[in-house]
C-alpha cells in the first residue's frame, strides 16, 4: 500500500533525525509521529521495531499510557479543554457543552478530519482560566464563542 509505504518512510526519517536509535529516543519519536499522522499507527510501530528494536506491543503500551499520544486518529488540530478545579470554577463546563454542540462527540475527528476535541487535566494555565489548548498552543481564557467558531470553521 502506498500510504503505508509513505508512513514507513516518514517514520524512518524521524528516527534518523534523532541522535541515536536507542530506546530512550522513543518518546520523542512518538511525539513526531503523532504530529505527522495525528496518531501512532501500527505500521509506525512496526518500523520502530525494525529500526530501534522496540517491540510493537511495547510501543502500544507506551502510546496508550500518555494522553498526548493516541493509537486512534485525532483531528489535524486538537482542541483540549481543561476541566480541572480552577477551570471548572470558571466555567469549563460551558466550554465542554459548546464543544459537544459544535464539534460533535469527544475524540472524534470532524468530517473533514481537520479538528477533534477532548477534555484534559490541568494545563498549568489556571491564572487564565478557563483554559484550553489548540494545536498544542495555549488558548486562555477560552470562551464558548471561540469553541463554536472553531466548530463552524471546521465541521
Amino acid at each position: 500500500m502506498e500510504l503505508e509505504a509513505s508512513i514507513r518512510a516518514r517514520v524512518r526519517e524521524i528516527i534518523a533525525s534523532r541522535p541515536g536509535k536507542d530506546r530512550a529516543q522513543l518518546l520523542e519519536v512518538l511525539h513526531e509521529v503523532q504530529g505527522a499522522f495525528q496518531s501512532v499507527p501500527r505500521v509506525a510501530a512496526e518500523e520502530i521495531e525494525r529500526e530501534m528494536g522496540v517491540p510493537v506491543t511495547d510501543t502500544y503500551g507506551v502510546v496508550t499510557f500518555y494522553d498526548l499520544l493516541t493509537d486512534k486518529p485525532t483531528g489535524r488540530t486538537v482542541l483540549r479543554i481543561c476541566e480541572d478545579v480552577t477551570c471548572h470554577l470558571h466555567g469549563s463546563s460551558e466550554l465542554v457543552a459548546a464543544a459537544e454542540r459544535s464539534l460533535g462527540p469527544e475524540g472524534e475527528p470532524s468530517a473533514d478530519g481537520s479538528i477533534s476535541w477532548t477534555r484534559c487535566a490541568c494545563l498549568g494555565l489556571c491564572d487564565q482560566a478557563p483554559a484550553a489548548h489548540l494545536g498544542g498552543e495555549p488558548l486562555a481564557p477560552c470562551t464558548p464563542a471561540f469553541v463554536e467558531k472553531a466548530g463552524a470553521r471546521h465541521v
Binding site: 510493537v56 502500544y60 496508550t64
Partner: peptide, 27 residues
C-alpha cells in the same frame, strides 16, 4: 517474544496483545 503489554492507565489499564489485537495478529 514480547507479545503482551500493559496498556492504558488507571482503572482503564489492562493487558493487551500486540497492537491491542488478536493473539494470532500479535507476535
Amino acid at each position: 517474544t514480547f507479545a503482551l503489554t500493559v496498556s492504558g492507565r488507571g482503572f482503564e489499564a489492562g493487558i493487551a496483545a500486540g497492537w491491542g489485537e488478536t493473539m494470532p495478529d500479535s507476535a
